[in-house]
Design a protein around this nucleic acid. Structure first.
Lengths: 257, 257
DNA sequence: TAACATTGTGTCGCATCGACGCATTAGATA
DNA sequence: TATCTAATGCGTCGATGCGACACAATGTTA
């Protein structure tokens, strides 16, 4: 199994390739079936699922490292990526856990091994279009798939805390940044956009006020087409006005729910 | 000179004491003479001023490390401290710069020395009461003093960028967090609080609307005393209602300027 | 004691937001 | 094919918040 061989290389040579002490973890959000999804990995060495993460090459910008991890796991380039918090507790990882995990794989890791050392991790969250993602496990993982946010219970190490903080940040940023472009298809209806907001905020919003507010931001273009096929009246299709969207990304919106 | 001796110890043994690759820098804001001040250090080894920073001990939480640095430079314990961004460009520091700097001090540092390595730095900003601070240089610095924000031009490495990002974050947080408790004396007048806001935001605000808004937050207690001595009508003194202040710290305020 | 600058308090108009009404329309139903 | 149904498009009303402004109150100075 070649991925297993890559894994051994990673274990053996990682220490000299990567910047020590620093790691990053990505909370990758997607939207599907009116539910907020998170992309998780299951390592062969452990029973728990974990956030896709990685390390920073010696001469690599940490932001580029996050983009690289995202590209590797999702296959996507055009990404909404936000650094949101650094997790720097000295006991957030435990080398005993790692040791046991790798022992399962028949790999012995001592306390001096680079993976046994303490890591300070930088949290990034990303918004991606669900349909465009091809989940692919890394060399140390046996599975990689979307999870419904509500079904996630325990995660590896402190990854649940990281996920919670990411969600908290996303909810805050929803008030200042135009969010939706990376989570929805290019053409979408107002009810679909509303569902997205309701799912993220975990509360219901008034249909008519939502429409007024959203159109008020001026970042949407209403198309002449409608989405037919669903029962009842066909809603208009919208797309983002990229000029104004990018402007809003820089300048921010206003107000709040 | 004992501080010089400590400095040599720091240079020689730091590599084994600290977590590699990771540093932190603090943007310490104070308010005095209606101007926003920042505490800066001047190292003996370099002509440029820099932000107070530090490294993380092997078994130390990174947040605790920031608190430690602040305590060392200011003597203050009760601190408003916010992690705001990670700066992770691979070329943000340049070991040549360090090498030249230390050569001045008669200390030779090779490219393999721990201080010559690449560091990813975590930015913290702090709000402190100007009058309570006793600026004290660290072992590598010859001076430590307050600078008016407007007088700061070039700083060491990328510290000016870090300062700018801190200021940007502070201005944003002004809309969500109750700010003032750590920057003002315990008792203060409404005009004084307004001056603080105006200085941070770099714009003038309407006196009457400011008062309405501030009292509306419900985190202020108006005392029965007034501040006499200044010419003209004596303004009331206020203090923060700590119960409601702390609640607002957690829950956030609302709106925005 | 009068002049003056600053502070305390209130008002007016406008924009925004939450709550809600009503007409329109595509598909389902019979 | 006519009718029903439920979701959507569009509008209204009242409360609230905010910017701009007026005026009275007050402590110091001359």
């Amino acid at each position: 199994m070649s991925s297993h061989k890559n894994f051994r290389t990673f274990i053996l040579e990682g220490g000299s390739l990567f910047q020590p002490s620093v790691s990053l973890d990505c909370v990758i959000f997607g939207f599907h079936d009116n539910e907020l999804k998170v992309l998780l990995l299951k390592s062969r060495a452990n029973d728990l699922w974990s956030l896709p993460g990685g390390f920073v090459f010696k001469e690599e910008d940490i932001e580029d490292a996050a983009i690289r991890v995202l590209k590797e796991r999702t296959g996507i380039n055009d990404i909404f990526l936000q650094q949101f918090h650094v997790f720097g507790s000295p006991n957030r990882s435990d080398w005993n856990v790692h040791q046991k995990s790798f022992k399962k794989e028949g790999i012995e890791i001592g306390p001096d091994h680079w993976l046994s050392k303490r890591f300070i991790t930088v949290g990034y969250y990303a918004l991606v279009e669900f349909a465009h993602v091809t989940p692919s496990p890394d060399t140390s993982a046996e599975a990689c798939r979307w999870w419904d946010l509500n079904d996630i219970d325990e995660l590896f190490m402190d990854h649940k805390q990281i996920l919670n903080k990411a969600l908290e940040t996303l909810r805050l940023q929803l008030n200042h940044l135009p969010i939706g472009y990376n989570l929805l298809p290019q053409k979408f209806t107002m009810p679909e956009l509303q569902k997205l907001y309701e799912t993220i905020l975990n509360k219901t919003l008034d249909r008519r006020n939502f429409q007024r507010r959203m159109t008020g931001f001026g970042i949407l273009k209403r198309l002449k087409e409608t989405r037919k096929g669903g029962a009842h009246r066909a809603p208009y299709l919208y797309s983002f006005d990229m000029r104004k969207y990018r402007k809003a990304l820089k300048q921010g919106l206003y107000g709040g729910w």
